[in-house]
Simulated scan of single mutants.
Amino acid sequence: MKKYVLIAVILFIISIILGVLFVDSFKPFLIEIINNLIEETPTIEVLSLFQHNLQANILIMIGGIFFSVFSIFTLIVNGAVLGSLSTFTSLDVYLLYIIPHGIFEFIALFISFATALIITKLIIRIIKGLFYKELTVKKQLNESINLIKAIIMSIIIVTILLAIASVIETYITTILAETILAII
């Protein structure tokens, strides 16, 4: 799991850098995102935010069934958008509005991506069980019990992290950022 999380972090950092470097390519898309955020911000609720983020992370995990192609794409796009958005304001303002809840969301994202890779590994084992005589699907699944446990544990951890992030984003991030900005 650790190596998969590390892969997620590296891909995410690279995509953030690419988002900053190629911000002009993303501008029309980013302006639409910013306008949607402005429209939705007053009505943001913990439960809807949690549901949205959980759904996105579960889709990333499920992407593992399809050899994580969708999961890789989603991780890279998220990083690129995040990097591009950082160019629209000063770094301190940007970080104040991202870090309080983002810490939990990023960890959940990285775990979700790692889970997608684990699911891909499990799918490959099942495929091997179908095509190789000496490896049966049942045998492959029995040998993959730790992978299955890791997937279940990841879903639980991601759910908890996203619940925490939703509460922080709804009730703390804006107030904290505005308070700090008023002081400095």
Rank of each mutant, 00 (worst) to 15 (best):
T159S: 12
I13Q: 07
N142T: 09
A80D: 01
F22R: 13
N78Y: 01
S48R: 14
L135D: 15
E178G: 06
R125H: 10
V93S: 14
F50C: 05
I155N: 13
T170H: 03
E39P: 07
E178L: 08
T74E: 13
F104Q: 00
I98F: 05
N57A: 15
V9D: 10
N53M: 02
A114Y: 00
Y171L: 06
N78V: 05
V20F: 12
G83W: 02
V77W: 07
I145Y: 15
G64V: 02
A150Y: 03
I172Y: 07
T89G: 09
L95T: 03
V23P: 09
I72C: 03
F113Y: 08
E105A: 01
V81G: 03
N146V: 10
L122P: 02
T170C: 05
V137K: 04
I118Y: 04
S15H: 05
L91F: 15
L91K: 13
Q140L: 02
S25Y: 10
Y97V: 04
N57L: 08
I44F: 04
N142D: 12
L176C: 04
T174Q: 14
Q55F: 14
L91C: 12
G102H: 00
T120F: 10
T174E: 14
N146I: 08
F12N: 08
V137M: 07
T120W: 04
E32K: 15
I184N: 13
I17S: 06
D92A: 12
E143F: 06
K128Y: 15
L11F: 11
I123E: 05
G19F: 02
I103M: 07
A108P: 01
S154T: 02
F131G: 12
I33P: 00
